[in-house]
């Protein structure tokens, strides 16, 4: 009993910090970002604005809480579109870009189908799991593409790198909670564990987004670098 109480306090505190953590990248982008035109920072900014809007205004409204799962599905579609756009812009390989377009269309159609056909009374585990896996693949491909390009130096001085790091950590960490959420969301212990994992990773994601906002895009390329387009 005591354990559960402690747990509830921790999850509540974490939830509040997570909600407030949206403000960090937002403020840093508006006031301190030195590369505002950077696609990674812009996408991160729009995602954070959307999340902050949902967290502060929609979920604080009692009527809106009834539509939590519907809002979750819409959020998944919104995030999916923006992150697909981000990876389409930052990945160099033309073949992979074509793949991104095809996958985006297919998964986009599935997400829309899921939104309209499924009753909005449960967590969207399958769409979330699919999108998480897709982003993990995109993130891994982006990182290996950068590593295999001998001309790209000081990769970690690029804001996009930290945005991708934030995404890979967030999506890798929340993959299992998302997958099990649909069938176990009614269990109190699962909810508290889900909140604990999700909120912690959400805070880490926002911290990394905030860190990315502070970095000036100074990715150094060696003199002979000519981006090879496959």
């Amino acid at each position: 009993m005591l354990y559960l109480e402690k747990h509830t306090i921790i999850t509540t505190v974490l939830r509040n910090i997570a909600v407030l953590s949206d403000l960090l990248p937002l403020i840093l982008f508006i006031f301190f970002a030195r590369s505002k035109k950077n696609i990674g920072l812009r996408v991160a900014f729009y995602i954070v604005v959307f999340s902050a809007f949902i967290n502060f205004f929609v979920l604080s409204n009692r009527q809106a809480r009834e539509y939590t799962f519907l809002i979750g599905r819409i959020t998944t579609i919104f995030e999916y579109s923006l992150f697909s756009l981000l990876f389409f812009n930052i990945i160099v390989s033309r073949a992979f870009k074509k793949g991104i377009v095809v996958i985006t269309i297919l998964i986009g159609l599935y997400l829309l189908y899921d939104l309209f056909s499924t009753a909005n009374n449960s967590f969207d585990s399958v769409p979330s799991g699919i999108t998480s896996l897709t982003f993990l693949i995109y993130c891994i491909f982006y990182l290996f593409e950068r590593v295999s390009d001998p001309t790209s130096l000081f990769l970690y001085s690029s804001p996009v790198f930290w945005v991708v790091v934030a995404l890979i950590i967030y999506f890798a960490g929340t993959f299992f909670p998302f997958i099990y959420a649909q069938s176990h969301m009614k269990e109190d212990q699962f909810i508290s564990e889900y909140d604990l994992i999700h909120d912690t990773l959400y805070i880490i994601k926002n911290l990394l987004f905030g860190f990315a906002m502070l970095i000036k895009d100074t990715t150094i390329k060696s003199p002979s670098s000519i981006t090879k387009k496959k």
């Binding site: 890979i168 993959f175 299992f176 269990e187 699962f190 564990e193």
Partner: peptide
């Protein structure tokens, strides 16, 4: 539920370890 906790814990830790390792 204890097994779900284990799967969640180890699954999440494993995925995080892989991501951070990468």
């Amino acid at each position: 539920p204890l097994n779900i906790s284990g799967v969640l814990f180890f699954g999440t830790m494993g995925m995080l370890a892989l991501a951070i390792g990468l």
